[in-house]
Amino acid sequence: MDRIVFRRVSKSVNWKKLLITNSSVIALAIIFCWIALVTPGFFTTRNIINVLNQSAALGFMVIGITAVFITGGIDLSIPSVMALSGILAAMAMQNGAGIMMAVLISILVGLFLGLINGYAIGFLRMIPFVVTLSIQIIGMGICVWLTSKVSIPISNGTYLNAFSGKIGIIPVSVIYLAFMTFVATVLAKKSIWGRWLYATGININTATVSGIPTRKVLLGAYAWSGLFAGMASLLITSRLASASSTMGQEGVVLNIVSSAVVGGVSFQGGFGTPMGAVLGTLIITLISNSMNMMQISYYMTLIVKGIVIITFVCLDSIRHRN
């Protein structure tokens, strides 16, 4: 009996479910079609590559926050962690450090700040919103203090080429993003850490009694987020050929969070994939790119962006109710 009933039910909700679970992909397709109709010059190879390139750094930060979102938390510190990583690496290069050293500094600074977040949230049971907001503010303070608001130019050609160069017509940043998306997807799907992460996000009590080290899982999620913020700084500082405290302003969080939400990563924990998150990033980048291409006024751009985000948050809560 159970079996028959279940099958019937699952078939009848299939279309709705398909729509909801794949909303980001469908939205991407719709946005593409729409832009293509309205903006003749949009589908040029140059612009497609342009959009991918613009998405790369944001994509890194979004992959980072995805792990945190899956645990049901939030990381508001990403922008200043990213800026601080970039500034320290740039300062090191100014003082003659090589590319390996710069990369190492970026990654370690990101990881370290992520671990602070994770320790406070996982082990000291502090509220993610408060902890990460404080780290954002502290990080911003350090950035301004280090730079006196003057940006630090980067002239190391190897570094610039390694992170903002091109292979053929493809920017290397896009290749890095594709690779890290793949790595994150495999870890999420196939590794024990992925299982732990989702279980913790869906129901931390169940996960705890099932022997999952939930505190370490939280620590790991924020460390992951910090690590990716550090990696994002490599792409950003090489693209701007400089590092400055202005990179780390709070507004960046809006793009990160909206990309994740649009990509189907739930605010409420337990759901979402790195792949979806990166698709969300593409959508968010596409929105601003296409608005630019269509020459829509700045104020309108803000309104449209807001509406898109609200729509997806709404979809998220519908999905959660189901």
Partner: peptide, 29 residues
Amino acid sequence: EDGMLLPSSILDNMSLANLRSYLSAGPFM
């Protein structure tokens, strides 16, 4: 509240308490 991961699959639920013994190579399941 404490027993299950309702949205997760039956397999995920049944293996949850025992994940470490289902590792194949490194961290992979």
